[in-house]
Design a protein around this nucleic acid. Sequence first.
DNA 1: CGGCATCCCCCGTGATACTG
DNA 2: CAGTATCACGGGGGATGCCG
Lengths: 128, 128
Amino acid sequence: MTRTDEKVRYSPEGKGSAYTPVTAAEGVEQAFRILEGRWKLLILFHLFGGKLLRFSELERAIPAISQKMLIQQLRQMEGDGVVRRIVHHQVPPRVEYGLTDWGQALCPALDALLTWAALRENGPDTVT
Amino acid sequence: MTRTDEKVRYSPEGKGSAYTPVTAAEGVEQAFRILEGRWKLLILFHLFGGKLLRFSELERAIPAISQKMLIQQLRQMEGDGVVRRIVHHQVPPRVEYGLTDWGQALCPALDALLTWAALRENGPDTVT
DNA sequence: CGGCATCCCCCGTGATACTG
DNA sequence: CAGTATCACGGGGGATGCCG
């Protein structure tokens, strides 16, 4: 590494957005807070692609999850604006869950992480 | 903004990289496992850009962290191949920490998450 | 300087039972 | 069908003190 003396805030595009290590970490942690949770990613990937799934369909798609955890994770993501809840007032009750636009926008970001994780195996360690 | 409302699914129908909701979630969770931890992101962002920092420098950079947590998070990331530990055998002891190439490769992925998180405020929610 | 060991607490998670 | 409520547990994380 040649020059590291510059005040590089790791900024990729050198645009107006200047991140310090602290603010950048906080931003990512904010994202992590939303995604953290034993089942959230699993739920998310079941909902990607604009799919709408009923509560019971999600239960079947994720057999190991309990009703409590399913509703808890869904509620949290709904509160965070990632998941949207569509209630059909009828008997028997019909509730569907899907992603918001912002939730859909997670796809490329998670894909980047997926790609990164895959590098571990593919990449020949240049780890000095 | 990029259009994510179309066929941006991770393509289960596609060829080559066929992720199911389960495998994709597992992949991202694998990445999350590595990044999860109260201080890891903060440490990471202090190390981005090929910077090498001593233990005591990291302590000063992150005042709120305890020695136990600092070494714990560093060790875990070292074990995961994200952080590399450089020991200079001398008196007094001198130990520096930096990122592996794989660790550096996290930058764009985390940037994607950062960008996504920023969308929440900037983007006028068309959350239907 | 750069750790390691111990105790303690909190909260996320799981199991189970009940309800509109 | 789609939840709600309660109890219990384990581990991640904080504070503190000691070692090479």
